[in-house]
Design a protein around this nucleic acid. Structure first.
Length: 223
DNA sequence: GCATTAACCACCG
DNA sequence: CGGTGGTTAATGC
């Protein structure tokens, strides 16, 4: 199930490319619609493409051999990932799973490398993205020390990071179970945290969605 | 005390 | 109808 037809390609880096480069990208990138629960990429497989989430929500998880989750990230629409493994030509180091029905894009390694060789703006984009991700990763280590309300606040804020996920507006379709999963709390506790954050005027809770009103406030909440 | 799981049921789309 | 959310009760750390 793939089409190279019209793609409302959620990728702001596309604008950084020349017309010729955009043309090749559109030709080479494969788009695929996947059902909820689909394992888009499995840990250990050779990396052949750069992955983009165009619609839906994907999770990236890293676990130990016994299956225990060590790290876990949500990728909303507009997020692209896997450039690290692609650059090092190594095997994928994590599982990528669609949390719900999603649309994913794959850019072949050859195209990715060609862009690296021909587009300085694209390199700059990657540099910014990788730096931002590193900063996010380091910051997350202190989440464990925070209470559940603050953990939820920060994980929600991460999903709205404009540098990593430019396609995400102020509203994101994500249910409370998924938020709980991201923040490492139960659905009930996530629900409670969301309402406290709403009472603090930081976000608005909708049906199967949240709307962020104060991104900085969320990042700062509880600490 | 606080969080978790399980279970309801009401409501939204 | 299925999915989501608000709530409660029982149990554990």
């Amino acid at each position: 199930m793939q089409s190279t037809q019209v793609f409302p390609l959620a990728a702001d880096w596309l604008d950084l490319l020349t017309a010729e480069q955009q043309k090749r990208v559109r030709q080479d990138v494969l788009i695929e619609q996947v059902a909820a629960g689909t394992v888009v990429e499995r840990k250990g497989e050779p990396v052949q493409s750069w992955l983009g989430v165009l619609d839906g929500l994907a999770k990236v998880s890293v676990g130990t051999a016994d299956g225990r989750l060590v790290s876990f990230t949500g990728i909303p629409p507009g997020g692209w990932l896997g450039e690290g493994s692609l650059l090092k030509r190594e095997k994928r180091k994590y599982d990528v799973v669609a949390l719900r029905e999603s649309v994913v894009a794959r850019m072949p390694a050859a195209t990715f490398n060609w862009l690296l060789d021909t587009s300085i703006p694209f390199n700059r984009y990657l540099l910014v993205q990788m730096n931002e991700r590193l900063s996010q990763f380091i910051g997350r280590s202190e989440y464990r020390l925070l209470d559940p309300d603050a953990r939820v606040a920060r994980h929600v804020a991460e999903l709205f990071n404009p540098l990593l996920y430019p396609g995400t507006g102020s509203r994101l379709a994500i249910n409370q179970e998924e938020i709980g999963y991201l923040a490492g709390v139960s659905r009930q506790r996530a629900n409670q945290a969301l309402h406290r954050l709403e009472a603090a005027g930081l976000l608005t809770v909708g049906y199967g969605a949240i709307q962020v009103n104060d991104l900085d406030g969320l990042r700062r909440f509880g600490g």
